[in-house]
Amino acid sequence: MNDMNLNGPLLYSIFLWLFVSVTSCSHRTSQNQENNVFTAQVTFNDSIHDFGTFSSDNPTQKYIFFFMNRSNVPAVILNVTPSCRCISTEYTREVVLPGKSGKVEVTFDGTKSAVGYFDKSVQIRMNSPHTYTLNIKGHME
Protein backbone atom coordinates (compact mmCIF):
# COMPACT_ATOMS: atom_id res chain seq x y z
CA MET A 1 0.00 0.00 0.00
CA ASN A 2 2.90 2.40 0.73
CA ASP A 3 4.37 1.72 -2.70
CA MET A 4 1.09 2.76 -4.35
CA ASN A 5 1.02 6.03 -2.43
CA LEU A 6 4.55 6.95 -3.61
CA ASN A 7 3.73 6.32 -7.27
CA GLY A 8 1.05 9.02 -7.33
CA PRO A 9 3.31 11.84 -6.04
CA LEU A 10 6.26 10.52 -8.05
CA LEU A 11 4.29 10.46 -11.32
CA TYR A 12 2.84 13.88 -10.56
CA SER A 13 6.36 15.26 -9.93
CA ILE A 14 7.68 13.80 -13.18
CA PHE A 15 4.72 15.21 -15.14
CA LEU A 16 5.18 18.62 -13.52
CA TRP A 17 8.93 18.60 -14.29
CA LEU A 18 8.29 17.69 -17.95
CA PHE A 19 5.63 20.38 -18.28
CA VAL A 20 7.90 23.08 -16.83
CA SER A 21 10.83 21.93 -18.99
CA VAL A 22 8.85 22.01 -22.23
CA THR A 23 7.19 25.36 -21.56
CA SER A 24 10.42 27.02 -20.41
CA CYS A 25 12.28 25.81 -23.53
CA SER A 26 9.59 27.15 -25.86
CA HIS A 27 9.61 30.46 -23.98
CA ARG A 28 13.40 30.67 -24.33
CA THR A 29 13.13 30.11 -28.08
CA SER A 30 10.59 32.89 -28.51
CA GLN A 31 12.78 35.22 -26.43
CA ASN A 32 15.73 34.50 -28.75
CA GLN A 33 13.56 35.26 -31.77
CA GLU A 34 12.48 38.55 -30.20
CA ASN A 35 16.12 39.45 -29.44
CA ASN A 36 17.03 38.95 -33.11
CA VAL A 37 14.85 41.97 -33.91
CA PHE A 38 17.50 44.13 -32.21
CA THR A 39 20.55 42.42 -33.72
CA ALA A 40 22.65 44.56 -36.03
CA GLN A 41 24.70 43.20 -38.90
CA VAL A 42 27.71 45.25 -39.93
CA THR A 43 30.57 44.76 -42.36
CA PHE A 44 33.99 46.36 -42.02
CA ASN A 45 35.88 47.66 -45.06
CA ASP A 46 38.79 45.50 -43.87
CA SER A 47 39.84 43.82 -40.66
CA ILE A 48 43.65 43.92 -40.99
CA HIS A 49 45.94 46.87 -41.59
CA ASP A 50 49.68 46.58 -42.14
CA PHE A 51 51.60 49.80 -41.37
CA GLY A 52 54.64 48.29 -43.05
CA THR A 53 58.06 49.44 -41.85
CA PHE A 54 58.29 52.79 -40.09
CA SER A 55 60.88 54.63 -38.02
CA SER A 56 60.94 54.73 -34.23
CA ASP A 57 61.43 58.50 -34.73
CA ASN A 58 57.76 58.51 -35.80
CA PRO A 59 56.36 55.81 -33.45
CA THR A 60 52.68 56.78 -33.59
CA GLN A 61 50.68 55.23 -36.42
CA LYS A 62 46.93 55.59 -37.03
CA TYR A 63 44.43 53.77 -39.19
CA ILE A 64 40.66 54.15 -39.52
CA PHE A 65 38.50 51.06 -40.01
CA PHE A 66 35.07 51.89 -41.48
CA PHE A 67 31.97 49.75 -41.11
CA MET A 68 28.54 49.78 -42.77
CA ASN A 69 25.31 48.89 -40.98
CA ARG A 70 23.73 46.35 -43.34
CA SER A 71 20.76 45.48 -41.12
CA ASN A 72 17.38 47.13 -40.73
CA VAL A 73 18.02 48.07 -37.08
CA PRO A 74 20.39 50.66 -35.60
CA ALA A 75 23.91 49.49 -34.70
CA VAL A 76 25.66 50.55 -31.51
CA ILE A 77 29.24 49.91 -30.45
CA LEU A 78 28.99 48.67 -26.87
CA ASN A 79 32.63 47.99 -26.03
CA VAL A 80 36.07 48.33 -27.62
CA THR A 81 38.94 46.35 -26.06
CA PRO A 82 42.54 46.79 -27.30
CA SER A 83 44.97 43.90 -26.81
CA CYS A 84 47.59 46.10 -25.13
CA ARG A 85 48.25 49.54 -23.67
CA CYS A 86 50.14 50.58 -26.79
CA ILE A 87 46.80 50.85 -28.63
CA SER A 88 44.20 53.56 -28.18
CA THR A 89 40.90 53.89 -30.00
CA GLU A 90 38.36 56.48 -31.02
CA TYR A 91 35.08 55.22 -32.40
CA THR A 92 31.58 56.22 -33.41
CA ARG A 93 29.66 56.57 -30.18
CA GLU A 94 26.37 57.56 -31.78
CA VAL A 95 23.80 55.11 -33.05
CA VAL A 96 24.59 54.06 -36.63
CA LEU A 97 21.33 53.92 -38.56
CA PRO A 98 20.63 51.24 -41.19
CA GLY A 99 22.54 51.94 -44.40
CA LYS A 100 24.91 54.38 -42.67
CA SER A 101 28.54 53.92 -41.69
CA GLY A 102 30.67 54.35 -38.61
CA LYS A 103 34.36 54.12 -37.80
CA VAL A 104 36.92 52.76 -35.39
CA GLU A 105 40.22 54.67 -35.38
CA VAL A 106 43.09 52.59 -34.02
CA THR A 107 46.32 54.28 -32.90
CA PHE A 108 49.53 52.37 -32.23
CA ASP A 109 51.87 54.29 -29.91
CA GLY A 110 55.33 52.76 -30.06
CA THR A 111 57.02 55.31 -27.77
CA LYS A 112 57.26 52.74 -24.96
CA SER A 113 57.51 49.68 -27.21
CA ALA A 114 60.62 47.86 -28.33
CA VAL A 115 61.58 48.13 -31.97
CA GLY A 116 60.64 45.19 -34.12
CA TYR A 117 57.57 43.48 -35.49
CA PHE A 118 54.19 43.84 -33.79
CA ASP A 119 50.77 42.31 -34.40
CA LYS A 120 47.99 43.68 -32.18
CA SER A 121 44.21 43.44 -32.12
CA VAL A 122 41.09 45.29 -31.02
CA GLN A 123 37.88 43.48 -30.06
CA ILE A 124 34.63 45.26 -30.99
CA ARG A 125 31.37 44.31 -29.30
CA MET A 126 28.11 45.64 -30.76
CA ASN A 127 24.42 44.85 -30.45
CA SER A 128 25.17 41.68 -32.36
CA PRO A 129 26.03 38.13 -31.29
CA HIS A 130 29.26 38.47 -33.28
CA THR A 131 32.45 39.95 -31.78
CA TYR A 132 34.50 41.73 -34.43
CA THR A 133 38.31 41.64 -34.35
CA LEU A 134 40.42 44.30 -36.04
CA ASN A 135 44.18 43.72 -36.42
CA ILE A 136 47.08 46.08 -36.95
CA LYS A 137 50.64 45.03 -37.60
CA GLY A 138 53.90 46.51 -38.70
CA HIS A 139 57.63 46.77 -38.12
CA MET A 140 59.12 49.64 -36.17
CA GLU A 141 62.85 50.15 -36.66
Rank of each mutant, 00 (worst) to 15 (best):
Y91T: 00
G8R: 14
K120G: 01
I87D: 12
T39R: 07
T39G: 08
I77W: 06
S30P: 02
Q31L: 15
F19W: 14
A114L: 13
G52C: 00
K137T: 03
Q61H: 04
T23L: 13
A75S: 11
P98F: 13
R125Q: 13
S55F: 05
I124E: 14
F67P: 05
L10H: 01
T60F: 04
I77L: 07
S128K: 01
N36W: 08
I48W: 08
D46H: 03
T43I: 09
D3K: 06
E34V: 10
D50V: 06
K112A: 06
S71E: 00
I136Y: 02
Y63W: 05
S121W: 05
V96H: 00
E105D: 02
R93T: 09
M68K: 12
L10F: 00
K103N: 03
E141S: 15
F118H: 04
Q41V: 07
C25F: 12
K137Y: 09
L78D: 10
Y12Q: 12
V20D: 14
M140K: 01
S47R: 05
F51P: 04
G52W: 03
E141W: 15
F38S: 09
L97K: 06
M1D: 10
N69P: 04
N135I: 10
G99F: 09
S113M: 12
T133P: 06
K62I: 00
S26Y: 14
N35E: 09
T89F: 00
S56L: 11
S24D: 03
S83Q: 10
N79T: 11
S47E: 08
F51S: 01
S101M: 07
E105R: 04
A114I: 10
N135H: 13
F44L: 01
V106E: 15
S21E: 03
Y132N: 05
G138F: 09
P59K: 00
Y117F: 13
T23A: 09
Q123D: 13
S121K: 10
L6W: 15
T29H: 08
D3R: 08
N69S: 03
Y91Q: 02
T53W: 08
V115C: 11
Q41C: 02
H139N: 10
D46E: 11
S26L: 15
H27N: 04
V95D: 15
G138Y: 07
E141Q: 14
T39N: 07
D3I: 08
I14P: 05
T89Y: 04
R70Q: 10
S101G: 15
F38K: 06
S26V: 15
D109C: 08
L16A: 15
L11W: 02
V95A: 10
V122Y: 05
Y12T: 14
Q31V: 05
N36L: 14
